[in-house]
Structures are given as structure tokens and as C-alpha cells.
């Protein structure tokens, strides 16, 4: 047994986090056609708020919940206070506004929570579990488990619940959805709430492994965006496939070649996707708002 299984496991856990970030990108892309560049900042904010909650002696579970709720409120406010002021914003306008919101979010976190890196303890400690030569950080299991739950939950929401299907209806035919009495603004607010909440959760569960700080969001956002493109923008299974693929590639490149290559892999994957298969691995051949 070489290092390969360990590298793949590490890839699976970072990949899971990328998948959650990609899920956020996809949900907002589906409902607005825009790329939400604040997604990475929401992930960072999730980690930072959870760490601040823990530093203030909150129980770990409550600190994570606080992070998810705070960021979700930030997401909803971004939509309500800023985007809703624009009359029929197109995808490009939304994308640009989200870049502005990203910068504001980052600065706000820096001003309120400071410039120092923050950390969280592992949810069930950090003594590695030895399992037949595999050394597993317990947080890895938490990350993979929570990601699976979120993915299954998101699938059930969009396939089964009336609100989830209504959101897909708005994405497919906004005008016909309005004629069915589905308020497109409600669908948009819901998309922002969901994307912000998954982002915050991703930030909170990865922080025990990586630390976090106010300037951590840009990189994570970029990784999540690459994962979403790799899997196919707008596709739910695509987020999972893209995330795991990117996480594994990164981990392998970091372990087998050099850790300097780790971040370059995401760039390379994004470029190759754009050159060879712009719709992504699970994309539908053309980038359309489905």
C-alpha cells in the first residue's frame, strides 16, 4: 500500500467541499443565468463565523448553525436589498453585481472578524483513525458524510418538493411559470438562500482541516467554479462529479508531483474543460438555462 489510497481519500474530502461550492454556483446559475462570484466569500464567511462562534465558547454544532444562518441571511439580503432594486437584471448585470457583493462581503468579514487566520477543532477530535494502512482524519468522514446528505437533500428538494420543482419551472420558462402563479422573485430569493447556506456549510466543515481567513474565499470560489464548469454548469450531479474529480486531481498532483502544482491543476482543468468540452463532463452539449 503506497500513498495512493491516502491521496485519493484526501482528494475525496477536498473534492466534497468543492462539490458543495459548485452546488451553490449551479443553483444560482440555474435561476439567474449568472455566475455568482460571491459564492467563495460565502464559504469563507461560513468558516469565519463558525470559528468566531466557537471562540466565543459556543458549542460546535451551534457555532456551525450560527454560520449557516448568518451567511444565509447575508445571501438573502444581497438579493433583496441589491438585486431586487434592478428592473429585470440580465445574467451579465447579476454577475457584475455579485462581484461587487463579493468584495463587500470580504471587507465586511475582515472589519468585523479581523485579519487573523481562524480555526475550528475537528467535529470528533483530530486523532487519525488507522484503517488498514489508511490514515483517516475523522473530519474527512464528517465532510464526506455531510456532503452526501446535502447532495441527496438537494436532489430530493428539486425533484420532489413543490418549491424545488417550481424553481426548475422558473428556470425553464420564466414567463410560463409566472402564468402559473409562481413568483420569479421568490424563486430567486430561494436560490440565494440555498446557495449561501450550502456555501457556509462547506466553509464550516473544511475549516478544521485547513484553517480559514478573510482572504481565503477567492481561491475556494475559484475552485468551486472550476468544479462546476468541469461537471457541467447547472447540473446537480455535475457538481458532485466535477468536485470529486477536481479534488482527486489536485490531491494526486500535489502528492505525486509537487504541492506547488496543487492550485495550477484547477486552472488547467478549467482551461481544458473550456477548450475541449465547454458544457462540462455531464453538460448537455450546449450551455443553456435548463
Amino acid at each position: 500500500m503506497g500513498q495512493l489510497p491516502n491521496l485519493l481519500l484526501a482528494g475525496l474530502s477536498t473534492g466534497s467541499v468543492y462539490a458543495l461550492v459548485a452546488l451553490g454556483f449551479n443553483v444560482i446559475f440555474k435561476s439567474t443565468g449568472a455566475i455568482n462570484f460571491a459564492q467563495g466569500e460565502w464559504v469563507m464567511m461560513g468558516g469565519m463565523v463558525a470559528a468566531a462562534g466557537h471562540a466565543a465558547q459556543w458549542p460546535l454544532g451551534l457555532a456551525v448553525l450560527l454560520a449557516v444562518v448568518t451567511v444565509m441571511v447575508t445571501g438573502i439580503l444581497s438579493e433583496r436589498v441589491i438585486l431586487r432594486q434592478l428592473a429585470r437584471p440580465g445574467p451579465l448585470v447579476v454577475t457584475l453585481v455579485m462581484i461587487a457583493i463579493a468584495i463587500c462581503t470580504k471587507s465586511l468579514v475582515m472589519l468585523v472578524l479581523g485579519k487573523n487566520p481562524a480555526s475550528l477543532p475537528g467535529f470528533s477530535g483530530s486523532t487519525p483513525i488507522d484503517w488498514g494502512g489508511l490514515r483517516i482524519h475523522p473530519q474527512t468522514l464528517w465532510i464526506i458524510g455531510i456532503t452526501c446528505l446535502v447532495m441527496v437533500g438537494a436532489h430530493a428538494f428539486f425533484e420532489r418538493s413543490i418549491l424545488g420543482r417550481a424553481m426548475r419551472a422558473v428556470a425553464a420558462q420564466p414567463e410560463a411559470a409566472a402564468l402559473c402563479g409562481i413568483d420569479p422573485r421568490m424563486a430567486m430569493a430561494l436560490a440565494f438562500a440555498l446557495a449561501a447556506a450550502t456555501g457556509a456549510l462547506a466553509g464550516a466543515i473544511i475549516t478544521p482541516l485547513t484553517l480559514t481567513s478573510f482572504d481565503y474565499g477567492t481561491v475556494l470560489g475559484f475552485k468551486g467554479f472550476s468544479a462546476a464548469m468541469l461537471g457541467g454548469m447547472g447540473s446537480l450531479p455535475g457538481a458532485l462529479v466535477g468536485g470529486i474529480l477536481l479534488g482527486s486531481l489536485e490531491s494526486l498532483a500535489g502528492g505525486l508531483i509537487s504541492s506547488h502544482f496543487k492550485d495550477a491543476v484547477a486552472f488547467l482543468a478549467l482551461l481544458l474543460t473550456l477548450f475541449l468540452r465547454p458544457a462540462g463532463v455531464l453538460g448537455k452539449g450546449e450551455v443553456e438555462r435548463v
Partner: peptide, 25 residues
Amino acid sequence: PEGRRVFGPLSVRDNLQMGAFTRLF
């Protein structure tokens, strides 16, 4: 609406349920 505008990715059943959205939600 003009041009039908059915919700393509949704099943026929889901399309019909969306038509009753105001009575389901």
C-alpha cells in the same frame, strides 16, 4: 402562452402540478 412554453425538463405530471401551484402552495 404563445408557443406553448411547457417546462421541458419537468415531467408531464410535474407540469400539471405546476399549473396548480397556487392551489398547492
